[in-house]
């Protein structure tokens, strides 16, 4: 990342409910779990990753967004890999 990009990164008013497109790959923390569904909360948007291991809460994972409803700020995704285990 260039110095200019580092200086200007985040120079915006970021929404509390970011939206994502199907097919997008994201890296984020798993922030919770409901049964075997992992929850990735980004701001006030939540992406569910079904059939996950609740031990992955707090781990950093890479996942693909499969669907996202911009109205309810909720979506579903598919776990691709565990980038870093929970501490």
């Amino acid at each position: 990342m260039s110095l200019w990009n580092k200086l200007t990164a985040g120079l915006h008013l970021r929404t509390a409910t970011p939206t994502y497109e199907p097919g997008e790959e994201l890296v984020a923390f798993v922030t919770g779990a409901e049964g075997s569904t992992l929850l990735v909360r980004i701001g006030d948007s939540v992406i569910e990753l079904p059939d996950g291991d609740p031990a992955l809460v707090d781990a950093t994972v890479r996942f693909e967004v499969e669907s996202f409803d911009a109205g309810t700020h909720r979506g579903r995704g598919r776990l691709l890999e565990v980038v870093e285990e929970a501490e």
């Binding site: 120079l11 994201l26 984020a28």
Partner: peptide
């Protein structure tokens, strides 16, 4: 309150 400067984890990964 406004999200000025806010970046989420997927926005940018720290070095």
């Amino acid at each position: 309150w406004t999200g000025y400067g806010l970046e989420y984890v997927p926005d940018r990964v720290s070095e």
